[in-house]
């Protein structure tokens, strides 16, 4: 697979480390009353989409950026690649903004 890195252009996916669903950015509030449940869901439950999937890739053998890649799990087509740092900052500025479109 080829990941079109937003800063570096196309790179072989073999340079990257895969973590999983981009929902791992949405770490719950540790002081919320239902923190235990929220952390359980955050850590263990997945949409596991058959189709468009936003996921975290780390450019370990590259620029060390964490990326959010939007990829179709049925075809492997990649439609969007973002810097996770940018997405995380945007989310912090506006918690309602999960980065998901629509």
């Amino acid at each position: 697979m080829i990941i079109n890195h937003p800063l570096l252009g196309p790179r072989d996916a073999a340079e990257f480390y895969y973590l999983g669903d981009a929902s791992l950015l949405d770490r719950p509030d540790w002081q919320a009353p239902d923190a235990a449940d929220k952390f359980y869901e955050y850590q263990y439950l997945r949409d596991n989409a058959a189709g468009e999937h936003r996921e975290l890739w780390y450019h370990e053998q590259g620029d060390r950026s964490w990326l959010i890649v939007t990829r179709d799990t049925l075809t492997h087509d990649i439609t969007k690649v973002e810097l996770a740092h940018d997405v995380a900052l945007a989310k912090q500025a506006d918690p309602a903004n999960t980065g998901r479109e629509g």
Binding site: L19, L25, Y58, E60, W66, H85, A88, Q92
Partner: peptide
């Protein structure tokens, strides 16, 4: 060593970006 570094970059970039 490698895994901890990666994890810390995750924390830095994705969890506490500010």
């Amino acid at each position: 060593a490698v895994g901890v570094f990666r994890h810390m970059e995750f924390c830095r970039q994705c969890l506490w970006p500010d």
